[in-house]
Design a protein around this nucleic acid. Structure first.
Lengths: 208, 208
DNA sequence: TAATTAATCACCCTATTGGGGTGATTTTTT
DNA sequence: AAAAAATCACCCCAATAGGGTGATTAATTA
């Protein structure tokens, strides 16, 4: 338990890489056991290093950081990956998290927060920069001004689960014709004429 | 800009309520302008208080915290709601965030973190307790050991968007029969026999 | 109170879809 | 060399989806 946390860094910018390495290595309880400038470099040796946590950049030469995540996870299933990048686009963030990153920090993060996040991630936490947390929280928030009624929203949710009219009717204890009627109204309100378009629009606008 | 942050507290436990109020009120830059023991109490006067941030408990008498969120948002559209609760169930958390909460803290949170989170939420951040952040991040992570191939996963994603075989075929520039064939294999692998069941199972296991 | 919206059900229609069978061929990966 | 992935083909038929055009009965809001 008192063992030092073993950290590897994958970052192509030499100055940053050395900076992080020095910073973390100088901190009590942390060892920087290796640094790499690309995934291709890292892949050859990192399985032997066996780091507890990898600090990973997104913009890398060769295999980019996001594609590197599942590969690293395969090499080191018990290793936590902490993204450290300037990229703040929603897609990048969600892709990185979906791929298996356990935390996401932007490069303006103060060094104390980086150090703390490495510990946090190893303890099962999910450290994020403030701006990332904002995006993540927003991704959960539904639109409060939906044109759809409660029932319509409910039915659109079931459509989003791939259910047929019949299945929806059974689940809600209403007639099949009533379901049809609701769906027609949904289509009218959203100005679409297919399930796929309704789902797309509803998800885009966070109606469901 | 230098104006103090106006905070309201809705919390049924008197000891906690007074504790928070004292704590926050004593801090430079913060004013506790009102405290309530339920939503029903708060609803009568809180629109006049016009707080910047509401600290909200989940387990409340009468209207519970989660149902109170949209109502409060309607009364005070520009107010941020910060959940402060012992509840840590995934559903509660995601429901609260979906309803419009901007942050979620558990009650073991140190007081400095609470104070900091109030400021953070007003600056557009999304403060979370460490354990909450863990759940939130995990909710994004996909299963790395899917039984499905890339193409199958892709097709199942499109099915999850409500698309028909024909639409999928057009989108992927493959034959309708090929789509059918993939879907059959998906059903075989997942041991289901309908779109709805496939989507359900895939989402449960984070295959898509 | 009057008007609107929500929720329920009914019956018309037809092209498309969905799911089940049972194959085969060609790449790609292992 | 063997296995898995990706592609396409043709059999079947009940169910579905979407469009039209209604009506009745709560609720909610003006």
């Amino acid at each position: 338990m008192g063992r030092n946390i073993k950290v590897s860094i994958i970052e192509d910018d030499e100055t940053l890489r050395d900076g992080y390495a020095f910073l973390i290595g100088a901190t009590e309880g942390y060892d920087v056991i290796s640094t790499y400038c690309s995934y291709d470099e890292a892949s050859k040796k990192i399985a032997i290093d066996k780091p507890d946590v990898i600090l990973l950049d997104i913009e890398l030469p060769g295999v980019n950081g996001i594609d590197a995540i599942p590969k690293l996870k395969k090499l080191l299933p018990n290793c936590y990956i902490l993204i450290l990048t300037v990229y703040e686009s929603e897609k990048q963030i969600f892709n990185a998290l979906a791929a298996g990153a356990s935390g996401y920090l932007t490069k303006n993060t103060p060094s104390t927060k980086i150090i703390e996040s490495i510990k946090e991630v190893r303890e099962g936490g999910g450290p994020m920069s403030i701006n990332i947390a904002r995006l993540v929280i927003r991704s959960f928030q539904k639109n409060q001004e939906s044109p759809l009624s409660k029932r319509e929203t409910q039915i659109l949710e079931l459509i989003g689960e791939g259910k047929s009219r019949g299945q929806i009717a059974n689940e809600l204890f209403i007639d099949l014709e009533t379901v049809r009627s609701h769906i027609k109204n949904i289509y009218l309100k959203l100005d679409v004429n297919s399930r796929a378009d309704a789902i797309k629009l509803a998800r885009q606008n966070k109606l469901i």
